[in-house]
Design a protein around this nucleic acid. Structure first.
Length: 808
RNA sequence: GGGCCCGUGGUCUAGCCUGGUAUGACACCUCCCUUACACGGAGUAGAUCACCAGUUCAAAUCUGGUCGGGCCCACCA
C-alpha cells in the first residue's frame, strides 16, 4: 500500500499492459446491454515501425475511447493492420532485396504473405506500448481471407449496380511501379527543368516557335494549339506544321484553353503530356499516338529514339534539334510536376485497360452525406467538400500489381464475355480458381483477371470488415453506423472519402456519426518530419527515455486538429507531472491509511472548498471531453491538481492530518474525505491521458475501496455536492483563505525568509462573515505560521474584496 | 488561381463561439533543503494579444480589409 520513493515507469507500464490483457479490461463484450460506442480504428500501414505521427493521433483517439468506456459504454475498439497492396510490396522488396516483377507472381505473393505475418506482432506491439486500449483480439488484416471476401463482395455488388466499368483510356500511370494509380495518389514535387523553345516549319513557309518542358514527346505531337484571340499567331490557324524528324504534318487549331502568356504562346499537343492533352483529344476528335511503353521507354512511334527512356530521350532530342538548328533558346525553370506519392516518380499518362467505379455524378450525394456526419473540428469538413468538388475522374480501382486483392472476374476465351465470381465462392483468385458456371456461349475456357484492387478499395470497407468479425447480425447492427472515425487530416481525401463512397453504395447510409481529425506531429521548428530531412523522432526511444504516459501527455497538449511541434522539453514537463502526482499520492496514502471512506458529520470549510472546485472541474472536463476537447481536460486538471490541490489544499490540511490529537478527529476525517475524493477524481480525469501511472495509483490504494478491477473501467467522476452538504459560501471563504495565504507567502519571500518561519501578525480584511472567518482561522494560522491574525469584515458595497497586511 | 487554418511575453500555449486589457508551461532573475516531492517550493520581472479601419460605453474576443506563415486542391504545355 505504500508507494516506493520513485515511480518506475518502465516496470509499471509493462506490468499493467500485461494485467489489462490478462484481465480482458478492454475486451469487447457483444452480449453487453450497455450502450455501444463503436470506433473505426485506422489500420496502420505495415511499414516497419510506428512513427511519432502515429503516436500522436492514436493517443488522441485513445483518449476518447477511454473516456467513453469510463462513461459506462461498451466500447467496440478493433485493431487492424493495412498490409495490402503496393506499399506492402515496396516494403517486402526492400526487406528481402527482391523485385516483384522479376519473380514468378505466386512466389512473390507468397513471400509477401509470409513476411507480413512474420513482422505483424512486433509491429502491433508498438501500439500496445503506447497504451492503445483497443481489443486486439478483434483483429483484422486488410489482406486476410476475411477482408478479401468483403472487398470482392463489395466489387461484385457495385458491379451489379452497373457502377463498375472497364475501359481502355488514358490514365495516370507510374512507370516505376508500372501500374495505374488514382488521382488521389499523386502529389506535387518541384523540379528543375528546361523550357525548350523549338522551331517548327509550317505550310505558311514561316516557322513557329513552341516552348515545352517535354521535348521528348515530340514524335507524339498530334496538333498545335493557338489562342483564337492571339494577334501574333492568328494567321497560322487552319494551317499545318511539320513535325521534325518525320514527314508527319499536324493541324494548327484554335483553342481557348491556351495561355498566351506562357512560353511562346503556342502549345504543342502531345499524347500525352498532361491531362489537358487527354481533354483536347476528345474535344478536337484527334487520334492519339501512344508513344510510351509501360516502363517509361519510347516505342516505335519515336522512330530513331525508340527504346530510350523519357529521361534519356529528352537530352537526345534536344541535341538532335540543335543539330538541325531548331532550338531558339533554352530557359532553365523550376516547375511543379505530379509524382506518385509512394515512390516520387514522375507520372506519365498511358492508355491502358482499367476498372473504374463511376461516381462523378454522385458528388452532391457525397457532400450531403458529409453534412450528416459531425466533424471535429468542424472546419475539416471544408477539406472534404473541396476535394469532392475538384474531382475530375472516376475512381480507378485496378492496379497492375501482384500483392493485392484480386478483381473477382474472368473473361471467356471464346467470346470475351465477362464472368463474375459467385458470392458463395469468395474469396476467389481468378488466376487459380474457375467460375462455377460456364459461359453463355457454352465455353468453359476462361482467362482470369490479372489486376488487383487498389488498397483503398479495401481499406474503405473497414467498418464492415471490423463489424463482420461478429457473425451475429444483431451485433453487426449495433455496431453500424459506427460512432467514431478517428484519423489524421492528411487522408481525408483518401480513406475518409472512399469510406463514405463505399458506405453509400452498400448501406445507403453514413459510415459513422462522428469523425475526429487529428493534426500532425511536427519537428521543433514546425516543419514536417521526414526521413530525408533527418528530423524524425523515434517514439520508442522516447518511451525508453521518458515513458509512454509522457508521450501521451504531450499528445494531449494540442487541440484536436492542430499540428503540434515536438519538443523534448515537453516530455520533461510530462515526466514532472507523473513525479508530482506520485509524490502527492504518497502523501495522501500515508494519511489515508486509517480512512474507512466515511463521510464526516460536518465538512471543514477548506475541504468543502476543494470539493466545490473539483466539482466545477469535473463538469467542465466532462463537457469538453464530450466534444473531443481532451486538451482542455488535461490542461484544467493539471492546473487544478498542481495549484489548487498540491500547492494549497495539501498544505492547508497538514495541520489537521498530522495533529488530530490537538485538532480533533472530525476535522481530520473531513480532510481525509477531501483528500480521498479529490485525488481519486484527479487520477480518474487523467486516466484517459496517462493510463499507466493512474492505474498504478488506483491499484495501490483505491481499488480495495472502489472494488473495480481497473481504473479504466471505473465510472467517470461525478460529484453530488448536495449530498456532501458543503457550507454555504465555502467557495468564497476558501478563495479569501487562499488570497491571505498568498500574501503571507509573498511577504516571507520578499524578506528572504523560509516558508516555515513564523510571522508576527496578519491583518486580513474581506467580505465574509466574522463567524466564517472563525471557522478557517485555525487552518489559516497553521499554514501561514502566523502568531496572530486580525480579521475585519468588509461591507458588501466596499470597492475592494480583500485587503491583507502582513507584519513579519 | 480556389478552399481552409493560424498570427497572444524570448519560446510554446489558454482565452476568442457566449465582448469588460490575458492562462499555464519552459527559459530568466531573487529567495527557501518546510516531516509528499530540491525530478521540489515561494516570489519578482516580462505581452500596446500581426497591422489598419468599423461596430460598441467597452474588442485579444464581433465585422471588413491589409500583411505574414502553414496545409489541401488545381495548374504552366
Amino acid at each position: 500500500m505504500e508507494l516506493k520513493k520513485r515511480y518506475d515507469a518502465k516496470e509499471s507500464e509493462k506490468k499493467w499492459q500485461a494485467y489489462w490483457e490478462k484481465e480482458n479490461v478492454y475486451k469487447f463484450d457483444p452480449e453487453s446491454h450497455e450502450e455501444v460506442y463503436s470506433i473505426d480504428t485506422p489500420p496502420p500501414t505495415v511499414s516497419g515501425k510506428m512513427h511519432l505521427g502515429h503516436t500522436f493521433s492514436y493517443s488522441q483517439q485513445d483518449f476518447v475511447a477511454r473516456f467513453q468506456r469510463m462513461l459506462g459504454k461498451t466500447v467496440f475498439y478493433p485493431f487492424g493492420v493495412d498490409d495490402n497492396g503496393l506499399p506492402t510490396e515496396r516494403l517486402i522488396e526492400k526487406m528481402k532485396k527482391v523485385k516483384g516483377h522479376k519473380m514468378p507472381r505466386n512466389e512473390f505473393v507468397k513471400l509477401c504473405y509470409n513476411t507480413v505475418e512474420e513482422i505483424r506482432d512486433d509491429f502491433v506491439q508498438d501500439w500496445k506500448n503506447i497504451g492503445v486500449s483497443a481489443d486486439f483480439d478483434v483483429f483484422y488484416s486488410t489482406i486476410n481471407k476475411h477482408s478479401q471476401k468483403i472487398s470482392q463482395r463489395s466489387f461484385l455488388e457495385i458491379y451489379k449496380e452497373k457502377r463498375i466499368y472497364r475501359k481502355r483510356a488514358p490514365f495516370i500511370w507510374c512507370p516505376d511501379c508500372q501500374t495505374a494509380i488514382a488521382q488521389v495518389e499523386m502529389k506535387d514535387s518541384e523540379r528543375d527543368s528546361k523550357l525548350v523553345y523549338m522551331k517548327f516549319d509550317t505550310t505558311l513557309n514561316e516557322q513557329i516557335t513552341i516552348a515545352t518542358t517535354r521535348p521528348e514527346l515530340l514524335p507524339a505531337c498530334v496538333a498545335i494549339h493557338i489562342h483564337p484571340d492571339d494577334k501574333r499567331f492568328k494567321k497560322f490557324i487552319g494551317e499545318k506544321a511539320k513535325i521534325p524528324f518525320s514527314e508527319r504534318k499536324v493541324k494548327i487549331t484554335a483553342n481557348k484553353d491556351v495561355d498566351m502568356e506562357f512560353g511562346s504562346g503556342i502549345v504543342y499537343h502531345c499524347t500525352f503530356g498532361d491531362m489537358d492533352d487527354v481533354k483536347w483529344i476528345e474535344k478536337f476528335d484527334i487520334e492519339p499516338i501512344e508513344i510510351l511503353n509501360k516502363n517509361g521507354t519510347l516505342n516505335e512511334f519515336a522512330g530513331r529514339f525508340k527504346g530510350l527512356h523519357v529521361k534519356k530521350a529528352r537530352p537526345e532530342i534536344i541535341k538532335a534539334l540543335e543539330e538541325e538548328g531548331r532550338i531558339e533558346k533554352i530557359e532553365p525553370i523550376k516547375h511543379v510536376v505530379n509524382v506518385h506519392e509512394r515512390c516520387d516518380t514522375d507520372i506519365e499518362i498511358l492508355t491502358t485497360d482499367q476498372w473504374f467505379i463511376k461516381y462523378l455524378d454522385l458528388k452532391q450525394d457525397f457532400v450531403k452525406y458529409g453534412r450528416k456526419i459531425k466533424w471535429f473540428p468542424v472546419h475539416m469538413r471544408a477539406r472534404y467538400e473541396n476535394w469532392i468538388l475538384g474531382l475530375k475522374w472516376d475512381w480507378n480501382i485496378s492496379r497492375q500489381r501482384y500483392f493485392g486483392i484480386p478483381i473477382p472476374i474472368w473473361y471467356c476465351k471464346k467470346c470475351s464475355e465477362i464472368i463474375t465470381a459467385d458470392e458463395k465462392q469468395l474469396p476467389v483468385d481468378p488466376l487459380v480458381d474457375t467460375p462455377k458456371t460456364k459461359c453463355k456461349c457454352g465455353s468453359k475456357d476462361f482467362i482470369g483477371e490479372k489486376d488487383v484492387m487498389d488498397t483503398w478499395a479495401t481499406s474503405s470497407l473497414t467498418p464492415d470488415i471490423a463489424a463482420e468479425l461478429f457473425k451475429d447480425k444483431k451485433i453487426y447492427k449495433k455496431l453500424l453506423p459506427m460512432d467514431l472515425r478517428p484519423q489524421a487530416h492528411d487522408i481525408i481525401t483518401f480513406w475518409l472519402f472512399n469510406t463514405v463512397v463505399k458506405s453509400y453504395f452498400h448501406h445507403k447510409d453514413i459510415a459513422w456519426k462522428n469523425v475526429m481529425i487529428s493534426g500532425w506531429a511536427l519537428d521543433p521548428h514546425g516543419k514536417k518530419m521526414s526521413k530525408s530531412k533527418g528530423n524524425v523522432i523515434d517514439p520508442n526511444k522516447m518511451i525508453e527515455k521518458y515513458s509512454a504516459d509522457a508521450l501521451r501527455f504531450w499528445a494531449a497538449g494540442s487541440r484536436l486538429g492542430d499540428d503540434l511541434p515536438f519538443m523534448e522539453k515537453d516530455l520533461v514537463t510530462a515526466q514532472k507531472f507523473t513525479t508530482k502526482i506520485w509524490n502527492a499520492s504518497k502523501f495522501a496514502f500515508m494519511h489515508l491509511q486509517d480512512f474507512k471512506k466515511e463521510k464526516p458529520k460536518k465538512f471543514e470549510i477548506m475541504d468543502a472548498w476543494i470539493l466545490i472546485k473539483l466539482n466545477k472541474l469535473i463538469k467542465e472536463s466532462t463537457e469538453n471531453f464530450m466534444n473531443y476537447e481532451y486538451s482542455h481536460t488535461k490542461l484544467e486538471t493539471e492546473k487544478f491538481f498542481w495549484h489548487s490541490f498540491c500547492d494549497n489544499y495539501l498544505e492547508i490540511t497538514k495541520d489537521r492530518l498530522y495533529n488530530s490529537d490537538k485538532r480533533g478527529k472530525d476535522p481530520k476525517l473531513s480532510a481525509q474525505y477531501g483528500l480521498y475524493t479529490a485525488l481519486l477524481d484527479i487520477i480518474k480525469l487523467m486516466a484517459p491521458i496517462t493510463p499507466y501511472i493512474t492505474e498504478e495509483l488506483y491499484q495501490t490504494y483505491f481499488k480495495k475501496y472502489e472494488k473495480i478491477k481497473s481504473i479504466h473501467i471505473s465510472k467517470w467522476p461525478s460529484l453530488d455536492l448536495k449530498e456532501n452538504k458543503p457550507a454555504k459560501d465555502a467557495e468564497k471563504i476558501g478563495d479569501f483563505f487562499v488570497y491571505v495565504l498568498q500574501h503571507a507567502r509573498r511577504a516571507k519571500s520578499e524578506k528572504n525568509m523560509s516558508l516555515k518561519d513564523p510571522i508576527k501578525n496578519i491583518l486580513a480584511k474581506g467580505k465574509i462573515k466574522k463567524t466564517d472567518f472563525e471557522n478557517i482561522k485555525e487552518d489559516l494560522l497553521s499554514v501561514t505560521k502566523a502568531e496572530k491574525i486580525v480579521f475585519e469584515a468588509l461591507k458588501e458595497d466596499s470597492k475592494i474584496d480583500y485587503e491583507v497586511v502582513v507584519d513579519v
